[in-house]
Computed example of a mutant assay.
Amino acid sequence: MNYENILTSIDNNITTITINRPTKLNALNKATIEELHHAFAAAAKDKQTKVIILTGTGEKAFVAGADIAEFANFSVEEGVQLAASGQEKLFNFVERLRVPVIAAVNGFALGGGLELAMACHIRVASDNAKMGLPEVSLGVIPGYGGTQRLPQLIGKGRAMEMIMTAGMVTAEEAYRTGLVNHVLAQADLMEFCTGIAQKMMKNSPMAIGMAINAVNANFKEGENGFDTEIKSFGKCFGTNDFKEGTTAFLEKRKAVFSGE
């Protein structure tokens, strides 16, 4: 598929997806969300892809929010559909992927941009990055999961403050509160994310996928995360990766995982 708003590449089993709307500070619109959904789905199905890195073009913005002009005149029903469709096609979709996704936050991550980063499994920020959910300053609330994922990551009180003040936090503040895992100079950002990806790729893709599902289960209403962990743990015993991992350990060699 030819994309207009994103770029994709794969190198050494790492697929990089880059949001490429520099004149709009990589803002999300419907077309970009559709393209991102397609790119993530394609990468997840590609057996060559072991890790996905998501970033934005340029040095100013990861994603500077949603494209406000696109929905400024929406009705109540259209607003509901906008949030529901976006969450299902992209934000929830990314969170549920069995392939690990690293957000390389290379600048502003505001509104939908921060919500997208929070849907990824790991966040790494450049030292010039600033993050926030400014929606209440526009008379609306975060609609792509921000009111749910931000408290999970930094706690209810801090999340309430960020959302209600519509303020931005620096990369260092984001690191202190657990919103991002690491902060790097922008020049080192992608190399560092690649290093994390390479560490992940030494391990079982099957086990990583099950671990993602088990961690997510703790935050799903009506689902017992401990039960999911127990069942997933048991399923691992029936995989080729388990047989290879345990055999390699006993034979004192490095495991070569097939992801099956």
Rank of each mutant, 00 (worst) to 15 (best):
Q48M: 05
Q48C: 06
K50C: 00
V51P: 02
I52G: 00
I53M: 13
I53Y: 13
I53W: 15
I53G: 04
I53N: 09
I53V: 12
L54H: 14
L54T: 14
L54R: 08
T55W: 13
T55V: 13
T55R: 13
G58R: 07
G58T: 01
G58Q: 11
G58W: 06
E59P: 05
E59A: 10
A61N: 08
A61C: 07
F62E: 01
F62D: 00
F62G: 03
V63K: 02
A64Y: 13
A64C: 07
A64L: 03
G65F: 03
G65A: 04
G65Y: 04
A66P: 00
A66L: 12
A66H: 06
A66R: 04
D67I: 11
D67W: 14
I68M: 15
I68Y: 15
I68F: 15
A69M: 11
A69Q: 13
E70I: 13
F71S: 06
F71W: 09
A72L: 12
A72E: 14
A72W: 05
A72K: 09
S75C: 09
S75M: 11
V76I: 14
V76M: 14
V76F: 15
E77S: 14
E78I: 11
E78R: 14
E78H: 11
E78Q: 15
G79N: 15
V80S: 12
V80Y: 12
V80W: 14
Q81Y: 07
A84L: 10
S85E: 13
G86E: 03
G86Q: 08
Q87R: 15
Q87D: 03
E88L: 12
E88T: 14
K89H: 12
L90K: 10
L90E: 09
F91C: 06
N92L: 08
N92T: 04
F93C: 03
V94K: 01
V94R: 00
E95R: 11
R96N: 09
L97G: 06
L97Q: 10
R98F: 02
R98S: 12
R98C: 02
V99D: 02
V99T: 08
P100F: 10
V101A: 03
V101G: 00
V101H: 01
I102A: 06
I102W: 06
A103C: 02
A104W: 10
A104G: 01
N106F: 08
G107K: 13
F108Y: 14
F108H: 12
A109H: 10
A109P: 09
L110C: 04
L110R: 12
G111W: 04
G112F: 02
G112D: 10
G112I: 09
G113M: 02
G113E: 08
L114M: 02
E115Q: 10
E115T: 03
E115P: 00
E115S: 04
L116C: 12
L116A: 11
A117E: 06
M118S: 01
A119K: 02
A119Y: 05
C120N: 08
H121I: 03
H121P: 08
H121K: 11
I122M: 15
I122T: 13
I122P: 09
I122A: 15
A125D: 07
S126C: 11
